[in-house]
C-alpha cells in the first residue's frame, strides 16, 4: 500500500477529500481497515472491488451516512477542503448538503417530480421565492439530462418514471442542494444497459462541476467514466491510481487477479 501512495503522491493541497487512517467497525466485523486516500476535485474517482470489500461502507463515511446505523463505529480522519468532518462542530446535516449522495436503487420520494427535486433546496432554505425554486428545479433537471423528458409533467409522481429516469431524478435531487461532491453507490446496478449508458454520459458531464466518487461493481464502467480508481479488497484499499494505469499496469498482484477475473 505504501508503494501505491508513493506512486501517486498525496497532494493534500489539491485534494478535495483527504482520508487518513479510516476504520469502520460494524457490530463485530471490521468493514474498512486503515484507509488513506486523497480524492481530487472536478474528477470522477471510482471505487472497485469484490462485493463485501468495504467500498460502499467507505463511501458512506464521506458524508457520515454511517451515523444513521447505530452499530457502526467510524474512527480516523476525513477532511473536506481541509476541514475534519468528524469535528464536533460539524453538523452532519450541513455536511450532507455539501456532499450529495445517489443510491444503488433509485429511491424517488412518493411525491411529484418537482417536489422531489425541490425537497433539498426547501429543507436547506436555499431559495427565497417560488420563482427561484422553480429555476433551481429546472436547472437541476437539465443538468441531470432529464428536463426534456419530464418538463410537461412536473406534477406527476416521481415513482411513475422508468428506472433510468428515476435514477436521473435522484441525481437531479442531489445536485439541487448545490453540493460540491457527489457520492454514487452503484448507481447503475438496477438499470438496463441503455439507461446505464445515459447515466454514464451524465456522470462524465458532472465531473466538470463536482468531485464525483462512484462505487461500481463493473470494471468496464470504472474504466469508462473515471479518471482515478481505487481497488478495495477485504476492507483494505489495495491500490489507488490513475484509472488507465491501474487497469493496464496494476502494481499489486491482488489488483491484477481481480481485473483479470480471478477473484471477485
Amino acid at each position: 500500500m505504501k508503494d501505491t501512495l508513493t506512486e501517486t503522491p498525496a497532494t493534500t493541497d489539491t485534494a478535495k477529500i483527504a482520508v487518513r487512517g479510516l476504520q469502520v467497525h460494524y457490530a463485530d466485523t471490521h468493514a474498512v481497515r486503515d484507509v488513506d486516500v486523497d480524492i481530487p476535485d472536478k474528477a470522477v474517482t471510482a471505487l472497485i472491488g469484490p462485493s463485501g470489500c468495504g467500498k460502499s461502507t467507505f463511501l458512506r463515511c464521506l458524508n457520515r451516512m454511517n451515523d444513521t446505523i447505530p452499530a457502526a463505529r467510524v474512527t480516523g480522519e476525513v477532511r473536506i477542503d481541509g476541514e475534519d468532518i468528524h469535528d464536533p462542530r460539524v453538523d452532519p446535516v450541513q455536511l450532507r448538503a455539501k456532499v450529495g449522495m445517489v443510491f444503488q436503487k433509485p429511491n424517488p420520494f412518493p411525491k411529484s417530480i418537482r417536489d422531489n427535486v425541490a425537497y433539498g433546496p426547501k429543507i436547506h432554505g436555499l431559495t427565497r421565492t417560488r420563482a427561484e425554486l422553480d429555476e433551481v428545479v429546472e436547472k437541476s433537471l437539465r443538468r441531470a439530462a432529464l428536463w426534456d423528458e419530464v418538463k410537461d409533467r412536473l406534477n406527476a409522481p416521481g415513482t411513475g418514471l422508468s428506472g433510468g429516469q428515476q435514477q436521473r431524478l435522484c441525481i437531479a435531487r442531489a445536485i439541487a442542494t448545490a453540493p460540491e461532491i457527489l457520492l454514487m453507490d452503484e448507481p447503475c446496478s438496477a438499470l438496463d444497459p441503455i439507461a446505464t449508458a445515459q447515466i454514464e454520459e451524465l456522470i462524465d458531464e458532472l465531473r466538470n462541476r463536482f468531485a464525483v466518487v462512484i462505487v461500481t461493481h463493473s470494471m468496464q464502467q470504472a474504466a469508462r467514466v473515471s479518471q482515478r480508481t481505487a481497488f478495495f479488497h477485504l476492507g483494505r484499499m489495495v491500490e489507488y491510481g490513475d484509472t488507465g494505469e491501474l487497469f493496464t499496469n496494476p502494481a499489486d498482484p491482488r489488483t491484477e487477479s481481480y481485473i483479470s477475473g480471478r477473484i471477485g
Binding site: R89, V93, Q94, P121, I123, H124, E135, K139, R143, E180
Partner: peptide, 25 residues
C-alpha cells in the same frame, strides 16, 4: 446551462448557520 444561482457560497463546515440551528431546535 448557466450556473445555478443558489445563494449558497462555499461555506465552512465548521460554522453553523442560524437556519441549521433552527432546524435542529
Amino acid at each position: 446551462m448557466s450556473d445555478i444561482s443558489c445563494p449558497a457560497p462555499a461555506q465552512s463546515l465548521l460554522k453553523r448557520g442560524d437556519r441549521t440551528a433552527r432546524r435542529h431546535a
